[in-house]
Design a protein around this nucleic acid. Sequence first.
DNA 1: TTGCGTGCAAAGGTTTTGCATGGCA
DNA 2: TGCCATGCAAAACCTTTGCACGCAA
Lengths: 143, 143
Amino acid sequence: MARTAYRTKQKELLLSYLKETGGQHFTVEDVCAHFAKEDETIGVATVYRYLDKMVGEGSVAKYVIDEHSAACFEYRGESACMEAAPHFHLKCEKCGTLIHLQCDELSAVQTKLFEDHGFELNPMRTVFYGVCADCRKKTGTEE
Amino acid sequence: MARTAYRTKQKELLLSYLKETGGQHFTVEDVCAHFAKEDETIGVATVYRYLDKMVGEGSVAKYVIDEHSAACFEYRGESACMEAAPHFHLKCEKCGTLIHLQCDELSAVQTKLFEDHGFELNPMRTVFYGVCADCRKKTGTEE
DNA sequence: TTGCGTGCAAAGGTTTTGCATGGCA
DNA sequence: TGCCATGCAAAACCTTTGCACGCAA
């Protein structure tokens, strides 16, 4: 059963950070560094523990952007239900930009996948890889 | 410039493995284990080195399925150009199954993303996360 | 006082890298 | 002979886990 959740300083700190950065991406390191600058301490383990729990609850989304860099998290609001404002993520393989995209066409894909293939897409975790408009313009010769 | 590429045993071994398993997924460990059973030796570093190069050339696709398990690779054929037979990958978050899906609707998304947002989707790297039909049937209560 | 929450450090896993050796041309 | 390719082991990286201590209730 749900244990009594203590109200601790770290939890408050993390929640305040989440609200500040709502909708933006951050890593665990970002969180720790942010508070280190303010002379507050919050250990990585603690951040991981909270974030993992919140991912399970759906209020935070976790994205594996690249296998070798830290995972990206994103706050989706306390009462965020997944259907609320689903958006997708486009990751540019050239410049590394992560684009938020709210697009009906993509939502249609979600429906299509479900109806035709019985597959229930999870937009909270899916990342589209490719090359963004800006990078395509630049001939694309550079790495 | 392109250096003279030597013809080595390891390269042959890897290529033969790729052709055998064409279209299937494998990890670096799979490759090494496969040859270890046949008393052939091919080190992980070598496999990573070749695979990374081939990913760059487009003949092998690399998927980050889960941040904590090994990366999945897939051979796409020597002369595989990306337009040839693009298919997408659906990863079930419940049972872990990786589904290959060749679907015109999804190809339409690719076009849509390109036309409306200038984003050139890379199907070789994109993985759709969600829940597969089988797992949805099973009430979905289990982890 | 009870026992959850925390931080530190160690462990765990995959992938990369350095370096000496081996093998292709 | 020259130099690319290889394998081993160590390093690097992110994330998880064990454990003792601190703090909320």
